[in-house]
Design a protein around this nucleic acid. Structure first.
Lengths: 263, 263
DNA sequence: ATGGAGGGTTGACCCAGCGTCAAGGTCAAG
DNA sequence: CTTGACCTTGACGCTGGGTCAACCCTCCAT
């Protein structure tokens, strides 16, 4: 006959755990010797080892009890199920490992690959890290709100970058971003933007861009929040008869002065 | 700006978890809008995703906090450590899978391989499952109490099985085991055992078997508890001047009648 | 016989990491 | 104005034990 600590040591568990299993009725209370010590037999060893094997597999103790007290068919089914869980868990941990490896480096975890690629393209154009971070944060906000649209939006952005004027536009964002309000480059930026807008309108953007009003408002407000000076540029363009940002519109002369809806 | 559920959904956690992270100071409380709702920015998204990546790797939240607020060197060290843990955990789960596969089948989990092999050898000799189970339970008890000795004991048992008389002895245990006290086979068993004992003594077993008294007592009492009828056989042998079981002794004529120590 | 080590006994409280109500206040749409 | 989907705080529950605390048993050496 075994004492509780002999039993526990052989099965690789603590004495406390064995007593816990008694308390919840998972392992039957054995007989006691005349001094009150529990005395275990081989059946207890076998049952305890079965308990541990299942518990190590992550099975809740209540389920362990069901399984051990069930027929062989149900038991086999249960074990199948547990093994499936184990395989999934192993795959999850392997995935976690690869995510962990990317933890230190960059924005890869917070953004879909398409956006990461887009930001890398901007870097390739010489855009400064300061501005890249602003863009990144804006894209994080957009991706968080409309994850299903993000890939198609980024695809449009890539198309836009095929236009040399767009490349020129991004070329402004290489150094410090806090331009004073009278910085002459602001007018240059507005000029480039106006050319882009004209071309966009000519290309038929007026017809509709496939996005609904809410999403356009989201894009506009996010970009306005993220890019310092964007308001200044928008003000200049408004004087010239343009409205919008994500969705470009020529403002009819009689409506000049109408505000954008508040972000 | 994001609401808490947008943030949570994007990071793949529950709203409740985000609030929990606020409560323990892991994720800073963001600003509120005029109605008291929390409003999150991109930095919160990034931090929350980092938190989840580490937490998914099994890192306690307190440790996550330390890591995220530490310098890059300490962070890299910590990630190394976590990855080591992950690899170990994956190996542990794979091991659990193979143990799980053996759960339904046999005694493999409760006994070392050497004993399993020994029991298989007994089966090969035609010993009945009823008796095998008794042996198995006895070996479980012995292995639980003196795991470091089990392999050498089993090795001795294997040697003993090379003796044809020992094979003959086990040959008795094929069917029912509850022999009546006057079953003639009991005398036959005693005869075979006596021949074995004589040969053992001649072979020099008297010199000492390398086991201490406590262990011999353990073997004796375990086998006596497990095998019905063993006491009868021992009684017959005692009349013939033998004592012991695990350790065989010729009892000098003047001490005939001396009892074995109580188990 | 006695004292100390090293078992054993019960009981009660404590932990992470949230899940799950409960009991409301807010917001957008119809 | 209502409805339904959010948001807020707060409190309790859960698993699988760990960690005292306070005491009893047994064995061994002295």
């Amino acid at each position: 006959m075994l004492t509780i600590s002999q039993l526990a040591a052989y099965a690789g568990v603590t004495v406390r755990a064995v007593r816990h299993y008694h308390k919840i009725g998972l392992l039957p209370e054995p007989g006691r010797d005349r001094s009150g010590y529990r005395t275990y037999d081989a059946a207890a060893v076998v049952r305890l080892i079965r308990i541990r094997t299942l518990a190590d597999a992550g099975v809740p103790l209540a389920r362990v009890q069901e399984l051990l007290d069930a027929g062989p068919a149900e038991f086999a089914d249960g074990v199948q199920e547990i093994d499936k869980h184990l395989r999934a868990e192993i795959r999850r941990l392997q995935d976690t490992r690869s995510r962990l490896a990317r933890l230190a480096t960059g924005e890869h975890l917070a953004l879909p690959q398409s956006v990461v690629d887009y930001l890398d393209r901007l870097r390739g154009l010489g855009v400064g890290e300061r501005y890249i971070e602003l863009e990144r944060d804006a894209w994080i906000m957009i991706a968080a709100q409309v994850p299903h649209l993000i890939d198609s939006v980024i695809a449009k952005k890539h198309e836009e970058l095929d236009d040399p004027d767009m490349v020129r536009l991004y070329g402004f964002f290489t150094g410090e971003l806090d331009w004073p309000a009278d910085d002459p480059r602001i007018v240059e930026v507005a000029d480039v933007l106006e050319r882009l807008m004209i071309r966009a309108v000519e290309a038929g953007a007026a017809g509709g861009d496939g996005f609904d009003d809410q999403f356009v408002a989201l894009m506009d407000s996010t970009m306005l929040e993220s890019a310092p000076g964007a308001e200044l540029v928008l003000a200049i363009l408004k004087e010239r008869g343009w409205r919008g940002w994500t969705r470009i519109e020529r403002v009819p002369a009689d409506r000049l002065g109408t505000e954008l809806p508040p972000p």
